[in-house]
């Protein structure tokens, strides 16, 4: 089951200028009990977003209608902690298609790439410029161009290139996933397995 392809995206962004945002904050463990991939966006950043009685915390950015868009911008070391793909699902289900940070935790980055959310790693300087631009104008737009591996702050006319390996880039551009690839080399895998004792 492949996912939506990703080519370019121009959108305003939601700023979360906090370092080390861990996957327990993105989605707490008590919301991991579903057996299907539905509804996780409702609990995205649950405990930062809602009080224990379920009322929204007005100061949290997702409850502030000033900010919206398909891009989430987070501080250094975004997505640390648990391997729960539910964190990436929650981000996708809420409506984000891209997460920008100056550094990502490994498993989280991989999980995003596997479901069609593009993690874009930028320099600390560019990240600070993004936060500053959003603070000045919450509607300011960012453009992510995957083919050319470029992220731009449109109004300021500045951009930066970002890394992604060629294989994953092709997958994202076409909406292919790894099982599509692996299924095509099944006999090679079976040959390998037959030489690998349990």
């Amino acid at each position: 089951m492949a996912y939506d392809s990703f080519k370019t995206l121009t959108s305003s962004a939601v700023p979360l200028p906090i370092e080390n945002v861990d996957t327990d904050q993105i989605i707490p463990a008590r919301f991991l009990k579903a057996t299907e991939r539905i509804g996780f966006g409702d609990n995205l950043f649950r405990d930062w977003r809602y009080n224990q009685d379920g009322s929204p915390k007005s100061e949290f950015v997702l409850n502030n209608s000033t900010y919206s868009g398909k891009i989430l911008v987070g501080g250094h070391n975004f997505g640390s902690g648990s391997s729960r793909e539910h964190a990436a699902w929650a981000i996708y289900d809420y409506g984000f298609r891209c997460v920008v940070s100056s550094f990502f935790a490994d498993i989280f980055r991989g999980n995003c790439l596997n479901i069609g959310v593009l993690p874009v790693q930028v320099s600390e300087t560019f990240l600070a410029q993004i936060f500053e631009a959003i603070e000045k104008n919450p509607n300011t737009s960012l453009t992510i161009d995957l083919l050319n591996q470029k992220i731009s702050l449109d109004a300021m006319g500045i951009s930066e290139s970002f890394e992604i390996n060629k294989y994953k880039k092709e997958n994202m551009l076409n909406g292919y996933d790894d099982i599509d690839y692996l299924s095509n080399i099944k006999s090679e895998i079976q040959q390998f397995a037959s030489n690998t004792p349990l």
Binding site: N114, D178, L182, I189
Partner: peptide, 21 residues
């Protein structure tokens, strides 16, 4: 540790696809 997409990959193909750290 791996994500659920990779769990699915390993169930179906006994392989994952990752760059060498």
């Amino acid at each position: 540790g791996i994500g659920t997409s990779e769990v699915e990959m390993v169930l179906a193909t006994q392989c994952i696809m990752q760059p060498k750290p």
